[in-house]
Amino acid sequence: MENVASKGRVAQEQRGLSRKQRNLLWGLLFTSPAIIGFFLWQFGPIMAAIGISLTEWKIVGTPEWIGLANYQKIFTTDPLFLKSVSVTLIYTALSVPASIAFAFFLAVLLDQKVRLLPVFRTIFYLPSIVPFIASSYLWLWLFNPDFGALNAIIRPLGLPESKWIFASDSVLPSLALMSLWGVGGTMLIFLAGLQGVPKQLYEAVEVDGGNVWHKMRHVTIPIMTPVIFFNFVLTTINTLQTFTQPFVMTQGGPNNASLFYVLYLYRKAFRQSDMGYASALSIILLLIIGVLTYIIFRTSSLWVFYEGERD
């Protein structure tokens, strides 16, 4: 067997290229769509965005070089920039921890060896694949203070009715509530993780006289921290880029209380055709996301537990 293999190898090497070189060529050939795509749709556009951000450019006409003036304007004289950053960060702080905790809770419930698991799993998962555009209209209607379902539920219970997304102090919590409806994907990732937790660890806790809470605190959560971390990073990055919901449901209102960053950027770029300014905003978002991700990664060693490190 070994002999035949080496003969084959020798035969191929005689054709001029070493095995290593041939593998390199084949590897590059197969991966070339993604590598070319990277330069066409990622690297090239980022470089171009940096360039455009240093110009004054209203799409018609030629870009005029103005150096860092866009950035200077954004940081010194643009109240809407600060507003949109704070809206986006507040919403992220409301929505992400709540979504992660809720998805984790649902997954733990589903992991209790219940019958009809596929039925419950389907019910919790389905909303997450409903198109954003459709779920945005649906929730706009659910939030309707007079004819919507939410106040129709609250009213008979004697709780105070809310204006939901139609009042500036309740719009962000309302949108965060809506985001909980779409945690199905996150929940499935947690569920798969939970099913991989070694059962003998639970038994060990039982032997030591531990209860459900001890199992959760000392087994489930520590073992799940890498999955929690993964979901936390992805959900944070996605949430910082929220666009469709405010675009459809509130147009950033009332009174700019839901002026999300990407919505503001979209307006600058495609409503006011201020491409230079919008590009500067996009680069700043890239930096914000980069810094936040870096912080999350750096602090992860404090709380994320990797199996390999156990020994």
Partner: peptide
């Protein structure tokens, strides 16, 4: 973020 590449 997808918006970074959107404009170019």
């Amino acid at each position: 973020p997808y918006v970074v590449t959107l404009i170019p």
